[in-house]
Simulated scan of single mutants.
Amino acid sequence: MGTYSFNRESRLLTPGHFQQVFDHPSRYGSSHFTILVTSNKDDKNRLGMAIAKKRVKLAVQRNRIKRLVRESFRLNQHKLPAVDLVVMVKSGIDQLENEAINQQLEKIWRKINQRHKR
């Protein structure tokens, strides 16, 4: 079992990191999320978020969504293969309850796990 930390190594930090994911992604989605996934060479998962103001107007809501995504990723990262992920959201996500957001993320983590076997 892996650690449950979410530290600097668990994040996509530079525009270059994001670009690698945008260049050759596998797409996974739900009604409110699009997650781009690329295998990486390290044995670590890394998470990046691109949550546009256009999709979620209020900073409070954008931050809430980011917190939920980070927490869900932190709890599930040990189940995922070595991938870089960029999470993007669709309009209307700010209307969802936290529980609904978590359920959508859980489903996507399972899908990623099935398709990206180690």
Rank of each mutant, 00 (worst) to 15 (best):
55 R>I: 01
117 K>G: 03
40 N>R: 03
66 K>N: 08
44 K>S: 14
55 R>V: 02
93 I>S: 06
25 P>D: 07
19 Q>Y: 03
85 L>A: 10
83 V>T: 10
58 L>I: 08
43 D>I: 13
88 M>T: 09
97 E>F: 10
57 K>L: 13
11 R>H: 10
105 L>K: 04
92 G>C: 09
62 R>M: 11
16 G>M: 06
10 S>Q: 10
76 N>Y: 02
116 H>C: 02
53 K>W: 07
107 K>P: 01
114 Q>C: 06
93 I>C: 05
86 V>A: 06
90 K>C: 02
99 E>Y: 09
118 R>G: 14
102 N>L: 06
21 V>Q: 03
41 K>I: 06
100 A>S: 14
107 K>D: 02
17 H>D: 13
25 P>W: 07
105 L>Y: 03
115 R>F: 00
20 Q>Y: 10
82 A>L: 05
92 G>V: 05
115 R>S: 02
21 V>E: 01
100 A>L: 14
106 E>N: 12
83 V>R: 12
79 K>R: 10
11 R>T: 14
108 I>A: 05
95 Q>M: 12
33 F>G: 03
69 V>K: 07
55 R>A: 09
86 V>P: 11
55 R>M: 12
117 K>Y: 01
18 F>P: 04
52 A>W: 05
66 K>S: 05
110 R>G: 05
28 Y>M: 04
57 K>M: 14
91 S>G: 14
69 V>E: 06
1 M>L: 07
44 K>A: 15
74 R>W: 02
62 R>A: 10
23 D>S: 08
49 M>L: 15
39 S>H: 12
39 S>W: 10
48 G>E: 08
27 R>F: 08
96 L>T: 01
91 S>P: 15
4 Y>N: 08
89 V>P: 00
77 Q>T: 09
17 H>M: 03
10 S>D: 15
71 E>P: 15
70 R>P: 15
106 E>L: 06
23 D>P: 02
38 T>P: 03
16 G>I: 01
78 H>G: 04
36 L>G: 00
69 V>R: 05
116 H>V: 00
93 I>K: 07
24 H>A: 11
47 L>F: 08
51 I>L: 12
6 F>N: 09
112 I>R: 00
112 I>D: 00
7 N>C: 13
89 V>C: 01
72 S>M: 08
69 V>N: 06
90 K>I: 04
17 H>Q: 10
84 D>I: 00
51 I>D: 12
31 S>W: 14
8 R>Y: 15
109 W>G: 01
55 R>K: 04
41 K>Y: 04
31 S>I: 08
105 L>E: 02
117 K>R: 12
86 V>K: 05
35 I>C: 02
112 I>N: 00
75 L>C: 14
46 R>E: 03
91 S>H: 14
40 N>C: 09
36 L>D: 00
113 N>V: 01
95 Q>R: 14
8 R>M: 13
70 R>S: 12
67 R>A: 02
50 A>K: 06
77 Q>A: 13
69 V>S: 06
72 S>Q: 12
72 S>Y: 08
104 Q>K: 12
69 V>G: 08
61 Q>D: 11
61 Q>Y: 08
97 E>V: 03
27 R>S: 04
109 W>E: 01
109 W>L: 03
18 F>V: 09
94 D>F: 11
65 I>D: 09
107 K>F: 11
3 T>C: 13
64 R>I: 07
66 K>L: 08
62 R>V: 07
113 N>P: 03
51 I>H: 08
28 Y>V: 01
14 T>V: 03
8 R>N: 15
64 R>D: 09
39 S>G: 15
12 L>W: 01
70 R>W: 11
